[in-house]
């Protein structure tokens, strides 16, 4: 496995007048790297570029040590890449096995016996074996996401790109996904995007916080939380000076922002740091610079 599986510099992508990515760059190594950001931040666009679905308008990308703009390299990258789209489509009349098998063929697993073995393996990984011969149209949304994850695991990819893999899952399913992803990340690079800060906190060793096409922050989940150190406090009443405030189950108000003198500060979470980051225009300017 390449130490730096994915490296991109000054990536820019526009959709007509909208700048989806604005000169972003990063290097991603082993483990799980999370993309965190609000809707429209550019996470999916970045992941689609990294998955070779889209070509950037400007900037450079190297995936698994290869240049995806070159046809031969692109094919080789795709042989070693797994991708789970944000809203995957399915052939609804196929069974789970048939669909994964179909994608396996496209992944060049042409030996029928070996392919079927591999298909059964990935279906087992996502715990869909009892449903392997059910039509996809008969599956729940959570099961369908597992089908999408299963196809991305075919041929044991070195780079796994998952676009909001836990979206729409119930808590138990999310925990199961976390388990699978964390195990998969033991010997490969996983890049995932999420709205869920707790997913990122639980899974990711590295986080990129994005907003409005730019990367606001690079670091560990702990560093995101540290970003809010001294800026989270509890008070019995709402403080209008706080950037954000909400009443907790204990009856106290949790505030984020510049703490007032004498305020009862508490240890911040990654969510606190994330909220501060995306609510701080200065952060955008600093990171852009």
């Amino acid at each position: 496995m390449t130490d730096v599986a994915c490296q991109f510099t000054d990536l820019t992508k526009r959709f007509r007048a909208t700048v989806a990515l604005d000169r972003v760059g990063a290097a991603v190594g082993g483990g799980v790297t999370g993309l965190l950001g609000p809707n429209g931040a550019g996470k999916t666009t970045l992941l689609r570029i990294l998955a070779t679905v889209l070509a950037p308008d400007a900037g450079t990308v190297r995936l698994l040590g290869r240049d995806p703009t070159r046809s031969a390299d692109r094919v080789e990258i795709r042989r070693r890449l797994g991708y789970m789209p944000q809203e995957p489509g399915f052939h609804r009349n196929f069974t789970v096995f048939e669909f994964v098998d179909y994608i396996a063929i496209l992944k060049e697993l042409t030996n029928r016996k070996a392919r079927h073995h591999e298909v059964r393996r990935v279906i087992d990984v996502v715990e869909l074996t009892p449903n392997a011969h059910k039509k996809i149209r008969a599956l729940s949304g959570g099961m369908r996401r597992r089908v999408a994850l299963a196809q991305s695991l075919l041929a044991d990819p070195e780079l796994l790109i998952l676009d909001e893999p836990t979206a729409g899952l119930d808590p138990e399913q999310r925990l199961r996904f976390r388990d699978v992803i964390s195990r998969l990340a033991e010997d490969r690079t996983v890049i995932l995007s999420s709205h869920q800060t707790d997913d990122v906190a639980a899974l990711c060793s590295h986080v990129l916080v994005m907003d409005r096409g730019r990367i606001l922050f690079r670091g560990s989940p702990r560093q995101i939380a540290d970003h809010a150190a001294g800026q989270v406090w509890l008070a019995p009443t709402r403080d209008s000076a706080a950037g954000l405030a909400w009443r907790t189950g204990d009856g106290d108000y949790r505030h984020i922002g510049a703490a007032p003198p004498g305020g009862q500060t508490i240890p911040p979470t990654i969510e606190d740091g994330y909220l501060l980051l995306i609510g701080d225009p200065a952060a955008l300017d600093e990171n852009a610079a």
């Binding site: 070779t52 679905v53 094919v75 080789e76 489509g89 609804r92 994608i103 496209l106």
Partner: peptide, 16 residues
């Protein structure tokens, strides 16, 4: 089929 079932993206990132 891929267009109708919206699997173009999944199929497009395969080496085929």
């Amino acid at each position: 089929r891929a267009r109708r079932h919206d699997t173009v993206e999944i199929e497009s990132i395969t080496p085929a």
